[in-house]
Amino acid sequence: MADEIFENPRLADIYDPFDSDRSDLDAYESMINEFSAISVLDIGCGTGTFACRLAARGIEVFGMDPAEASLKVAKTKHWSDRVKWIHGNAIDLPKLKVDLVTMTANVAQVFLTDEEWKETLLAIRDVLRSGGRLVFETRKPESQAWLKWNRENTYKRIDIPDSGVVEGRVDVTDVQGSLVSFRWTYVFESDGAIITSDSTLRFRSLKEISKSLWDVGLSVEGVREAPDRPGLEYVIIAHRLTA
């Protein structure tokens, strides 16, 4: 079940305006060239920004997300007709083979249990061609990014076409070990509606991640910095070991 921020149609409609700077995707797009990938599966594609960017370049793209409302927004975008959209989770993937699997933004951290994470990695391994790669990012636990998840640092007030003026912010609600929970709050000035969305992310160490990949037949090929968040995130590149 997707979080309300992705599943609620009213929130899905304002997701892009509140996250308009997608320079984080530039590094992923450059890796398409670096690895000569001609087919890509974007897991947790959300409103489809990255998938549509790749489709515009002639890449064969599969965009997967469990949130139907987000996919509905994705399908309105230019080049969306060239993306093969899949409603569901990685464990529900149909039979296909790709050169590259991506999980941008916080997608890799939404899998909270070891079992759920392992099932997802196994599903990814199975759709990768021999030598294919998985690329994803994850926040460094030691950077404690959640310390800045508060009104002071996250508040925005935006005038959005068809939605009017909307206020948004995020607040941490709980920290338990590697699990950090937080709440998005949106206020629609047009009718006074207040809609909240609760989320939890798991902050895994690089050692944990590397072992979990190896256990399912994926080997860490490289670890890079996220250009848009230097010092705060790992961008991990793993490849499939066997055919």
Rank of each mutant, 00 (worst) to 15 (best):
M1L: 04
I5V: 10
E7S: 15
R10K: 15
I14D: 13
Y15F: 14
P17Q: 11
P17G: 11
D19N: 13
S20Q: 11
R22I: 11
A27P: 00
A27E: 14
A27C: 08
S30C: 04
F35Y: 15
A37G: 04
S39P: 02
D42I: 04
G44F: 07
G46I: 00
G48E: 09
R53F: 06
R57P: 02
P66R: 10
E68V: 12
A74Y: 10
A74I: 08
A74N: 10
W79S: 14
S80C: 08
D81A: 13
R82K: 15
V83D: 13
K84A: 12
I86Q: 14
H87T: 03
I91Y: 09
D92V: 00
L96D: 04
L100D: 07
L100W: 05
L100N: 07
V101S: 00
V101P: 00
T102I: 03
T104K: 00
V107W: 05
V107E: 03
Q109E: 10
V110R: 03
F111S: 03
F111E: 05
E115T: 07
L122A: 02
L122P: 01
I124Q: 00
R125A: 14
D126V: 12
V127T: 14
R129N: 13
S130M: 07
S130G: 09
G132C: 07
L134A: 10
V135Y: 07
F136E: 09
E137A: 11
R139Q: 10
K140R: 15
K140T: 14
Q144A: 15
W146P: 03
K148F: 14
W149G: 06
W149C: 04
N150E: 11
E152M: 05
T154Q: 15
I158K: 15
I160L: 10
P161V: 00
D162I: 00
D162A: 12
D162S: 14
S163G: 01
G168L: 04
R169K: 08
V170Y: 15
V172W: 02
V172N: 03
V175P: 04
V175W: 00
L179N: 12
S181G: 11
S181R: 10
F182G: 06
R183S: 12
W184M: 04
S190P: 00
D191M: 05
D191W: 02
G192Q: 09
I195C: 03
T196N: 12
S197Y: 07
S197R: 04
D198T: 01
S199Y: 04
T200P: 01
F203N: 09
S205D: 12
S205G: 13
K207I: 09
E208M: 09
W214Y: 12
D215F: 02
G217N: 08
L218D: 07
S219D: 08
V220P: 01
G222P: 03
E225T: 00
A226Y: 01
A226G: 11
A226L: 11
L232V: 10
Y234D: 11
I236L: 07
I236F: 02
I236P: 02
A238V: 07
A238Y: 06
A238Q: 05
R240Y: 08
